[in-house]
Design a protein around this nucleic acid. Structure first.
Length: 425
DNA sequence: TCTGGGGTCCTGTAACCT
DNA sequence: TCTGAGGTTACAGGACCC
């Protein structure tokens, strides 16, 4: 490939303040004002904020109450994941019209490998500009694009181009681009690791690059240390992979106020198990392992898991295991803030061994749940549910974008980013 | 100022198998 | 039969990402 992006075939496209931008598109009177998308309840956090709100120090994951103290004039919206997913679907379709090598990382970002598209559409930078224009024309929102020879550098490039920009980092420019960045800019360096690196006197990526890999591995562990050292020298051999299989699926919910009643917890575990099982069935997966998560009032969090004899996608079986794991904790009315149920070690439904001895009974339960799935598709989610869930108390609070929304079920990719796939299609 | 919900990956430890 | 080494798997916790 020739031209100004010579040697670059990887694009990272990232929507600017995605959820908030979609909201502003829907309500043009909010353009140019601070807008926050997120939970408004006492335990809600910010999911997305316009750049006008960010100027006040508002950022994602910040408690909404605190965001409002920083920026009292902000408009807080609960969010509409179905709408965001629809926009995302259109944008990803646009990407796939350019190249089949599209790796979605979440609803609002994706890697593209355009090595094969160059002859038709120009070099990677021209393709990036073309995509930015098309996204704006078709969706009325802006995005930023990073162009580089590796995923990791392309991602950092798009971040540095934000908002509404495009940045090219040619192979010969990688070190000049990377080494002045703070260590926290590296993928995989969060607050804890950053603190550790700062204690070692390592402030920039350049500092980190000039420390022997062995030293980093001693400080951060073998895998992380080695990985960061490679990244600091711009080495990232990962390819753009269009379809990664799912590894787990689950749901969790924070109660509006802490709960100490085991009956309420049991009901919540049942609801979360049913939801998780529905996800498994719609995706054609069975789970080999069930895990639960319990977060106490003081935010201390524990997990417990158990591997099943036979993989399942039946809500009642997930629940039986989840409940037994919870009861085994032997909690004496501890105050609990959150519970979660997760299905792990997924296998394709067709490839797993079938339940033999208990066949008749288990099939009956599964058939009932499949019938409930059909009813839900026809009459809406929640049309059929276990009797114990008909009168739920201790309603969960938290984010406005609750997991009750079917579209928050978008499966995720490595690193926990949602992948745009829609089970109800 | 009090921390959502959806994920993946890594590490340490214990148990188990050969 | 006992013991130990080494590999694999399960489990729990933590860090990280969006």
């Amino acid at each position: 490939m020739t031209g100004r992006a010579q040697g670059c075939t990887v694009l990272h496209v990232d929507m600017d303040a995605f959820f908030a931008s979609v909201e502003v598109r829907r309500r043009p009177e909010l353009a140019g004002t601070p807008v926050i998308v997120g939970g408004a309840g006492n335990r809600g956090v910010v999911t997305s904020a316009t750049y006008e709100a960010r100027r006040y120090g508002v950022h994602a994951a910040m408690p909404t109450a605190r965001a409002l103290r920083l920026c009292p004039t902000a408009t807080v919206l609960p969010g509409d994941l179905a709408l965001y997913a629809e926009v995302s679907r259109s944008v990803m379709a646009l990407f796939r019209a350019i190249t089949p090598l599209v790796e979605p990382l979440s609803l609002d970002e994706a890697f593209l490998d355009v090595a094969g598209a160059g002859r038709r559409l120009g070099d990677a930078a021209e393709i990036g500009e073309y995509l930015r224009a098309r996204v704006f024309d078709e969706q009325g929102i802006t995005c930023s694009v990073g162009v580089a020879s590796s995923k990791f550098v392309a991602k950092l490039a798009s971040t540095s181009a934000k908002p509404d920009g495009l940045r090219i980092v040619r192979p010969a420019e990688v070190m000049d681009f990377l080494h002045p960045l703070p260590v926290g800019a590296l993928w995989g360096v969060g607050p804890k690791t950053e603190e550790q690196l700062l204690r070692l006197g390592l402030r920039t990526v350049g500092d980190l690059a000039h420390v022997p890999a062995k030293t980093l591995q001693r400080a951060l562990g073998h895998a992380s240390g080695g990985h960061l050292h490679e990244l600091a020298w711009g080495r990232d051999p990962r390819r753009v992979v269009p379809d990664e299989p799912e590894k787990s699926a689950g749901h969790e919910e924070t109660f509006g106020t802490d709960v100490d009643d085991p009956e309420v917890i049991h009901r919540e575990l049942l609801l979360l198990s049913e939801r998780t099982a529905g996800r498994l069935r719609s995706g054609g997966w069975l789970a080999r392992t069930v895990s639960i998560k319990v977060r106490f009032a003081d935010f201390a969090t524990i997990t417990r898991s158990r591997t099943l004899d036979v993989p399942t996608d039946v809500g009642q079986e997930l629940y039986d295991t989840a409940r037994s794991l919870f009861d085994a904790l032997g909690l004496d009315r501890a105050r609990i803030r959150l519970v979660g149920v997760r299905a792990e070690r997924l296998v394709e439904a067709g490839s797993a061994p079938q339940q033999l001895e208990l066949g008749a009974r288990e099939h009956g339960r599964r058939d009932a749940e499949l019938a409930a799935d059909r009813a839900a598709r026809r009459f809406g989610a929640g049309a059929v549910r276990p009797a114990t869930l008909l009168h739920r108390v201790g309603r969960p609070g938290g984010s406005g974008l609750t997991s009750a929304d079917p579209l928050s079920r978008a499966p995720r990719n490595r690193g926990g980013r949602p992948v745009v796939r829609h089970p109800e299609e």
